[in-house]
Amino acid sequence: MKLRSATVGAIFAGLTLLLPGVQAQTPAASEAPNVLTGAGATFPAPLYKKWIAAYRKVDPAVVLDYKAVGSGEGVKRFLADSVDFGASDAALSDEQIAAAPRGAVLVPATAGMIALVYNLPGLNGPLQLRRDTYAALLMGRIPRWNDARIQATNPGLNLPDREIVLVARLDSSGTTYALANHLSAASTQWRDRGPGTGKTVSWAAGTMLVRGNEGVAARVKMTVGSIGYVEFGFAKHLGLPVARLENKEGRYVAPAAGVGEATLAANLARIPANLRVFIPDPDGAGAYPIVSLTWLLLKERYTDQAKAQALKRFVNWGLQEGQNMSSEMGFIRLPGDLIVRSQAALGMVN
């Protein structure tokens, strides 16, 4: 008996011994000339990871490592100068740019739609939500799915008599920022008597709080009667149903390929020269109401020129070739005009 448990112990010890072996190879890899480390938003992480994998074929000498830790943490690490590049779905504020030790250049890299995903098995159609309804819902003011306010816009749906379970982000998040920013523009209740705007906001008691876009998507997937918010790509990846939301012009729009591009294209004029825009409530009949750009944070002055050049080549590749991958993964392909402006911003990196 003792012997057997010792055997089991040995097997596990053997498994853990494998791990240092794996890690021991990493320093060898870092001897390659260009190892670029980045950290930040979870929202574009699937796309960035795909870019990194594809870019390895383009330029095998550059090794990129992106850690999806959330926008808040990404900005923190970027400002602490502990990464080569950061990523955030909320642009830096003026104070933050001033505080960046080596200067900050914000390059919009991709954009996404923030989808409200829900888990209602057996529901006979997509959910449609009015603006004040989804604001109230996310404030925790609608207790059950068969509430009259939800039924009003979904007359044909068999809404269950179930509690609504909210799933939100625990960590400091650009996705939360984009959602809260939109809701503050769309609902005075949310702005004045609700959580307001921020990378972390106060959620109602009983809200499940989890880390990362992938965490929210996974939690909604396993929790019956739940609703949460994620970048559309995550909903697509897990096959979660998304709600059709009422936009500024009173139309109900679901996130889908093409919708995000049309929304951005229709609102290009509203993007200011410094590219640090949040379109809290986009115009246009076909616009999806919650869209967000997401930024790569680069330094104005790099100490290592080889690193700076490699990073610039990678980002430039992402702005051109990389855009072809966005649509299928549930992200928005940036409009050509915006790409030109992103590339101009990239030119400021030295």
Binding site: E163, V165, R219, M222, T223, V224, G225, S226
Partner: peptide, 14 residues
């Protein structure tokens, strides 16, 4: 038995 406090809410998942 939903009137009992132990079963007051439904099991949604975790």
């Amino acid at each position: 038995l939903g009137w009992l406090p132990f079963f007051k809410s439904s099991l949604s998942g975790p």
